[in-house]
Write a protein that binds this DNA or RNA. Structure first.
Lengths: 163, 163
DNA sequence: CAGTTTAAGGCAGCTTCATTGACTTAACAA
DNA sequence: TTGTTAAGTCAATGAAGCTGCCTTAAACTG
């Protein structure tokens, strides 16, 4: 009984490894041709999710150091994917957003992963999808859950603004 | 409608990022004290899952190059976590397995992630867990699914042998 | 206003984990 | 015997993270 339970958990470790790997791999193929890596993709993704976010917000979400982000962000800005604008309320901040070129690349990367996800969701069914989300959310710590809530709020706001 | 759907998928991207990060982070704390990294953990994990596997099996599962694995494996062997034994049927192979010390470390790493998973499974409920597994499996490509099947078969065999 | 804190960024050096390409050795298989 | 396969090695390289320390400009606070 305990044995079966442990096997289930070990299998979950396996599955997380393979699924995450294949999922990120989908975008890698696009990135490879552009001299960009996964770190650039992650930055693009979250800037797309919350346009106008500050550098420190992004740092907190990615959980890396300022110096690590710096390299990535410098490249993205130099190559015209991302722009910075001083904050209106706090002018020390440099608020990040995507250029048209950046948005186009982000969409291309998104679509690769979207196709994978859509196929998986379709194969697994809507009940399974709901469960998938519940477990993923429960696996995420408090900080991560706060970030997730911020993502959802930002998406709602974008939707309201564009409507 | 399409808009909502896309938001759901983007949120899934977010969640996979945060959940995977927190999940691997659980084991990192143990590894840090031992001068070992995630790459060592991955090797330990899969050797524990399929004791007696060949080097090329492990290469195929991890999806890295021989040289990358070589560094990791050399460390694990030198520090007494892993042993190699020539294959009985094909003596070119060096079959990998954990020492008692390796098994103890792997268990310690497993237990960190197990606790996280158990809490998440408990919070999410058994229906959600079933869905979680279905989606993860569907996200995994054919190669990965073959590896998953091999894991399950190896676990069944271990269980039968120890019974 | 003076002093402190904060947001962003830069410099230098380091570590981990991956890559490629070319090569060797030993064992298997035709 | 010849060719292939399993494993390992060398040298060089790249991607992505890290630490510690310092600067600038803006904001906050007494």
């Amino acid at each position: 009984m305990l044995f079966l339970r442990e096997e289930e958990l070990r299998l979950a470790q396996d599955m997380l490894f393979f699924a995450y790997r294949d999922f990120t791999h989908a975008a890698d193929e696009v990135l490879d041709g552009l001299e960009l890596g996964r770190a650039h993709h992650r930055a693009l993704h979250f800037i797309a999710r919350m346009p106008g976010m500050s550098v420190s917000d992004l740092l907190s979400i990615l959980g890396i150091t300022k110096q690590s982000l710096s390299r990535v962000l410098t490249t993205l800005i130099e190559q015209g994917y991302v722009v910075q604008a001083p904050g209106r309320v706090d002018r020390r901040q440099r608020l990040l957003s995507l250029t048209a070129k950046g948005a186009a690349l982000e969409r291309q990367l998104f679509e690769r992963q979207r196709d994978l996800l859509l196929r998986a969701y379709r194969d697994a069914g809507s009940t399974a999808v709901e469960g998938f989300r519940r477990v993923l959310r429960a696996l995420t710590d408090e900080t991560g859950q706060a970030h997730l809530a911020a993502m959802e709020a930002a998406a709602r706001e974008l939707r309201a603004r564009s409507a």
